[in-house]
Amino acid sequence: MKFLNKIIFFFYREYKLNLSGVQDILTNIIFFFVSIFIFIFSIGPDTDTISLIGVGILWTLLLLSSTLSLRKFYQEDFENGNLLIMHLNGFSYGLIAILKTISHFIFVQIPFLITIPIASILLNITNDKAFYLFASFSIGSLILSCLGSISSSMNLMNQRNFLLGSVIVMIFSVPVVIFSVGLINLEEDFNSLINILFGILLIIFVINPWASGFCLKLSLENN
């Protein structure tokens, strides 16, 4: 029960922190929508073309927008010593990684999920395709959060090049984008493709606490 309380209050802490930095979340969403408008203006008024490539555009922009927040994944807690203090208070490095990943999913990715219906209207995406997009991004965004956790924890040891973390996430998210966009365009293969996405999620979810935890340990040791 005590352990459960600690986890609940960890999320309370994350909620308070994200509430105080709500402008960052809004900036991400604004970036996402401004980018959609730029795509629409650059493609022109042909609704069929926009509709055809809309899903790909949305997935690319969701990926780019969610990588914007990666710099803050562990950085603040690392710099002010909170990672160490949490570790001394019974949170293992792996557990910190899992909790921070779930927190990133809740406070960064879910706002994007909520905006998908509006973005779908702007890109003339049909209702059924919007539903598949929503389903694929629900799973894909958790995969992106796990990848973000690994790359951000690696980046703590590399204070010079923050963009490297975003590049790593984008390279490793290529299979996720392939299967997610395929899932929407090949509707008859929905079950098989969503199972593959689930499979990728399970693999990365298991690797994440181990890999991120190890990087957190190393970065605290070398700090």
Binding site: N5, K6, R13, K16, L17, G81, N82
Partner: peptide
């Protein structure tokens, strides 16, 4: 055991009261 580093671990975006509440709850 507990530790104070040479820098502040308080969450600078939050108020003193919020920090106290969070510590009180998260450290049980």
């Amino acid at each position: 055991v507990t530790y104070i580093a040479d820098k502040t671990s308080s969450l600078t975006k939050l108020t003193v009261k919020d920090n106290i509440n969070i510590w009180n709850k998260i450290f049980l």
